[in-house]
């Protein structure tokens, strides 16, 4: 695919001596929302960490026209790949505004020269009104749902071209999950690409265009969200009850 924002081929990754990913290949197009689905331990989080250079990995990784296979995490982030981890990793001693400042990066452009959306705290507070009500609250004194919003907002401060969203629905109340879904749709409208890792098919269905199903560190199924929704066999084998 020529217009792929992110293309991954033959990705392998390790935690210490244990190999978690064996052969993972996929791509995410510009403005596309792609879901990586699969049970716990299938390798979704590891895939995201491998893309960011946070675990040892091997394979062909291209992002926005650049080879990122040999780069360190901060270099990858500076190319416009944003990462929101599953466990949020908010800086609890820092306030909301300070957390946002840590994520701040200069505006950037797509490979074709088009400008990527530029985010400011004001814009983000419009997107997440809850955060706007508590700009000076330390991260450690926020609820899980508020932290979930802050971690996404913090990543957006880097004006990313593509965001890796690791399990945004995990451990938060249904109401917050709904807000996260609305946010993703909003970001897609802005032209961002999103790679989503998810176990909740109801949530993934609301936001994703395409799906890759991971199992034991390999891609076992791929297709559009609509196809997956109609394919109870795959759902039963890898996802649901």
């Amino acid at each position: 695919m020529n217009d792929a924002m992110l293309s991954v081929a033959g990705l392998q990754a390790w935690y210490g001596a244990a190999q978690i990913l064996h052969d993972v290949s996929f791509n995410v197009g510009r403005g596309e929302v792609v879901a990586l689905m699969g049970r716990n331990g299938a390798g979704k989080t590891t895939t995201m960490k491998a893309l960011m250079g946070l675990v040892s990995r091997r394979g062909a990784l291209r992002f926005n026209g650049a080879d990122i296979a040999g780069l360190r995490p901060f270099e990858i982030a500076r190319l416009g790949l944003g990462f929101t981890p599953e466990d949020r990793r908010i800086f609890s001693e820092l306030t909301v505004l300070e957390n946002l400042d840590i994520g701040r990066q200069p505006p950037r452009q797509f490979a074709d020269g088009a400008a990527a959306p530029v985010w400011t705290p004001e814009r983000l507070f419009a997107l997440f009104p809850n955060l706007g009500e508590m700009p000076n609250r330390p991260g450690g004194r926020m609820s899980g749902g508020e932290q979930q919003m802050l971690t996404v907002a913090r990543t957006l401060m880097g004006n990313p071209l593509l965001v890796l969203l690791d399990e945004p629905s995990e451990g938060v109340a249904p109401l917050i999950v709904e807000q996260m879904a609305n946010t993703i749709i909003e970001l897609k409208k802005e032209g961002l690409s999103i790679l989503l890792s998810e176990q909740n098919i109801h949530f993934a269905r609301l936001v994703s265009d395409r799906v890759y199903v991971l199992e034991k560190g390999e891609i076992h199924w791929q297709g559009t969200m609509a196809e997956l929704a109609g394919n109870l066999e795959v759902q039963r084998a890898y996802l649901t009850v």
């Binding site: 901060f74 990462f83 990793r89 800086f91 609890s92 001693e93 820092l94 840590i102 880097g158």
Partner: peptide
């Protein structure tokens, strides 16, 4: 200062600071 904020953030989670584009 931003340097101070980065220091405080890195005190808690330096890997995350790196993943946000800061050269640790």
């Amino acid at each position: 200062t931003r340097f101070g904020r980065l220091m405080r953030a890195a005190t808690q989670d330096r890997e995350m600071v790196g993943a946000l584009g800061v050269n640790q």
